[in-house]
């Protein structure tokens, strides 16, 4: 994917894009799943948002652990693993959280 040569880096753009697509894929899955979970157990308010951030940061840590020391072969910066998709995933999370909360919690319906 990438090799180090003095200071210059040789990158394959399509590979980078594919890696980011996979990262996005993971993020969407985690958002949907954690949104469902939060809805079913009936989290409200700040706890729900906290739950999302904990889940997605946990996912990033799992990815870091999974890639191990090959990490720099796939992603340029470790930071992008944590921050690049967290906001786009929030939308999916909110949708599923609201949906399952509305479906499961009897106090409002």
């Amino acid at each position: 994917m990438m090799m180090k040569n003095d200071q210059l880096l040789a990158l394959s753009e399509s590979a980078i894009r594919y890696n980011h697509f996979l990262l996005d894929y993971c993020q969407t899955s985690i958002s949907a799943l954690s949104g469902c979970t939060a809805g079913i157990i009936g989290l409200t308010g700040l706890y729900g948002f906290l739950f999302y951030f904990i889940c997605s940061i946990l996912m990033s840590f799992v990815l870091v652990a999974f890639l191990g020391k090959n990490k720099s072969d796939y992603f340029l910066s470790t930071q992008s693993l944590f921050t690049s998709t967290i906001w786009s995933g929030l939308q999916t999370y909110l949708l599923f959280w609201t949906f399952l909360y509305g479906m499961c919690i009897d106090s409002i319906i």
């Binding site: 996005d24 969407t28 939308q91 999916t92 909110l94 949708l95």
Partner: peptide, 21 residues
């Protein structure tokens, strides 16, 4: 509280990444 028309619009935007999936 969310009305039905707004729920449709929220879905329209929120399901985007699900289509990717």
């Amino acid at each position: 509280w969310v009305s039905s028309a707004s729920w449709y619009i929220i879905n329209l935007f929120g399901l985007r990444s699900m289509y990717n999936l």
